[in-house]
Amino acid sequence: MTRPPDMKPAVLPSPLQSLVAAGNLQSSAAHLPSLQSLALQVQHNLQYQHAWSDLRLHTTSPLTNEPLPRPLLSGLPPHRLYVHPDEQIELLKTADRERKARNKQGDTLDVKTEAEHEWILPTRLSEKWTLHRLADVFDALSMVPPAADSAATDDRPANPWRTTKRLVLATAGSDSTVVYYIVHDGVVKPRQN
């Protein structure tokens, strides 16, 4: 049965389904299609649910150019996602000095943090992981995701506090919930929220 071209189908596919079906899967033989669609799902979630920008899919390591253990994402969150506790102390001190310099009554602390690019590791909740696999992912990562080709000149100064590799572990449940955890490569003291 044919349908007039201007008529919608009875049941629309979800935006995510159409994104995956639209042939966005890269023809990289190094990774399973399931992992690629997982990366797309997480990318979709970050872009539309958490307002991230500059999201890019990585299939090879920026360090060695070898294929990554699985496709990874990089992106820019709308706000700074992680502030190291020592950096936080420093930022608060700076903000306090500036407030005193302005010397206005009732002035509030104005802490300035710029958003930083983050690595994202897409995973499924049903997966099993080992320390070995996690270490392999970290070994393939650079400290900061490489700048996009279009914006080759990254005017952002490197953050001197970013001294250990970190990534955002995105875990997708079967009901399409995605949770995000920051994983550091090494012993990093916790934030005092």
């Binding site: 080992t130 320390l131 070995h132 875990t171 955890y181 916790p190 929220n193």
Partner: peptide
């Protein structure tokens, strides 16, 4: 844990969430 010992991602999520709730970090190694 052992280097090649498998763990559930739910353990990471649970440990990470509990740790952050009490101002600590969950450490696996």
């Amino acid at each position: 844990m052992d280097w090649d010992q498998e763990f559930d991602l739910l353990d990471i999520v649970g440990g990470g969430r509990l740790g952050t709730g009490v101002k600590k970090a969950y450490l696996i190694g």
